[in-house]
């Protein structure tokens, strides 16, 4: 049984780590880009960002003033048991979000869409989002917080099989060029692409590709992994760098996730996880041990499973 106090304390610690500490994979990716960037202005921006990450860690202050919209991904081993059940879990995550917003502090970004009511704690209707995943074995739960920022850089389009890879490339470039100008996408970014599913799941896949996979990771399907390499290179060939200045630092990495879709369609979404890619992860074990990391390890073979434990009825004509 996992104690609810442990969950809340861990969640508070994760909120702080996400806001302040740039994940190592993103930092390594950005350093590589800074080494090869030859646009003067874009280079200046990347150096300033590297200094900023250091300042944030030294001062224990948020790395960016727009601290994004805190959200939670909870993954549970099949044997995990939580004190008070899922209702207590959600209450603890909401408390941790509000308390950390006040304590760190974070910017109280969340408001009512119409009345603009701000509770000054990043909690409200549907906020923070809490999403779930499950794994076959284990008594642990993984808590992942992502504080995704940005009103710019995300788009969706219904494409069709006849659009093909050329259409996918066009929409990818359109999204980067449109939101990269003036640096509105806060690039270089981790670009997540969702392909397939339905409109809603396509958006979820793309967002998770951006936020729950690390720089340097590759899809387990080698043909999709090759597309990830190709799209990263394509994005960096636009001629646009940090802040939309001349340069080649647009895509720190490109992650693609897919889901089975309607036979007539090919849904596509594009998401940009910005220069302050805020994510933090902890595994809480049944005995109360807590292990912190930065890789959500969300997309396991189980999450990408495509088979069913079911045997189709045997056709008589087949055996005849």
């Amino acid at each position: 049984m996992i104690a609810i106090d442990t969950i809340q304390e861990t969640a508070e610690r994760l909120m702080e780590k996400a806001a302040i500490e740039i994940p190592q994979d993103y930092l390594d990716g950005l350093r590589t880009m800074a080494d090869t960037e030859d646009g003067d202005l874009s280079s200046f921006v990347l150096q300033a960002m590297l200094e900023n990450y250091e300042a944030a860690k030294q001062d224990r202050r948020a790395m960016c003033g727009d601290t994004g919209c805190p959200r939670w991904y909870v993954k549970m081993g099949n044997e995990a048991r939580i004190e008070g059940g899922p209702i207590a879990l959600e209450a603890a995550l909401r408390r941790a979000t509000a308390k950390s917003t006040n304590d760190i502090p974070l910017r109280p970004n969340r408001v009512h869409p119409l009345w603009r009511t701000d509770h000054d704690n990043n909690v409200g209707i549907g906020a923070p989002e809490i999403e779930y995943g499950f794994e076959p074995d284990g008594e642990w739960i993984d808590l992942v917080t992502v504080h995704k920022g940005g009103l710019f850089g995300t788009d969706y389009r219904m494409l069709f099989p006849s659009d093909g890879i050329e259409g996918i490339k066009r929409f990818f470039l359109d999204s980067l060029v449109a939101f990269g100008k003036r640096g509105l996408a806060c690039q270089p970014a981790i670009i997540g692409i969702g392909l397939g599913g339905s409109k809603d799941t396509c958006m979820v896949l793309g967002k998770r590709a951006a936020c729950l996979r690390t720089v340097g990771s590759r899809n387990s399907d080698p043909r999709i992994a090759a597309m990830e390499d190709e799209f990263k290179e394509l994005g960096n060939s636009i001629g646009m760098g940090a802040m939309g200045f001349v340069g080649k630092s647009m895509v720190v990495d490109c992650n693609i996730e897919v889901g089975y879709c309607h036979t007539g369609g090919m849904q596509m979404s594009v998401h940009a996880f910005c220069l302050s890619s805020r994510r933090a992860v902890a595994r809480i074990h049944a005995d109360g041990r807590v292990e912190y990391r930065t890789d959500p390890e969300w997309f396991t073979d189980y999450q990408r499973r495509e088979t069913v434990e079911w045997t189709p009825p045997q056709s008589l004509s087949k055996s005849a």
């Binding site: 202005l41 389009r157 219904m158 494409l159 069709f160 006849s162 659009d163 093909g164 050329e166 259409g167 490339k169 066009r170 929409f171 470039l173 060029v177 100008k181 003036r182 394509l234 060939s237 636009i238 001629g239 646009m240 939309g244 200045f245 001349v246």
Partner: peptide, 23 residues
């Protein structure tokens, strides 16, 4: 900066295709 980048865009878009369903 936008004007300088725009000069390269035709080349980057080579081999892509407008969507079958426009908006």
């Amino acid at each position: 900066e936008n004007a300088r980048i725009a000069a390269n865009l035709d080349k980057v878009y080579e081999g892509t295709r407008p969507a079958v369903l426009r908006r």
